[in-house]
Amino acid sequence: MKLNSIHSITSSELNAFFEENRQRTLCYLESRFPVLQEDDIEDIFQDSSITLFLKIQNNELLDLTSSLYTFFLSICINIARNKVNRSHPTYLLSDNITDSDFEPIRNDKLEELENLVGYEIAEEQTDQEYLNWIEQQVREGVRQMKPPCNQILWSFYWDGLSHRTIADMFGMKSEDVSKTQANRCKHKFSDFIKKVIASYER
């Protein structure tokens, strides 16, 4: 089953997911598996898309503990490894070549920090209506983020990717560029939060 035929039967949401993540996946695979040709990389992306589609169909994603993209990337990595082992049996592929790519946020650490600083955005603000409103505004702020901020921050915090991986995926010169850009984006978000708090009218 080829990707073209999948497009006609998958939902528009899943098609959009593949399109949105196509370029960064191809860049990533090229950098991690340099022995593979461009056609091979395209084939891997297509095969992975089919695999993901079938797994969703078979209800295998009901207990997903990572982001959908991280799961999809793992499929790509497995297929790429198999391809390298089959087509280049003498090529030494390190077992842990992709280990440092994934650095997920730990939920226990997140909870620990939340317990430490409290949930309210400011010390004196505990009003529930206020908190609801802040949360809504934050979600809206996240939805409206534009590239490169959404690319970097969503990759870092939701997909759990390292800055090195993000730099490779989005064609940045180095991981330091990704870190610097991430800090700028967080600073922008911090300004946004301050404006939101200031604009709240009781």
């Binding site: 600083v117 955005i121 702020g141 996240v142 969503w154």
Partner: peptide, 10 residues
């Protein structure tokens, strides 16, 4: 706190 709000929102 702001960091946590960002992460929760995402």
């Amino acid at each position: 706190r702001e960091h946590l709000y960002l992460i929760r929102g995402i």
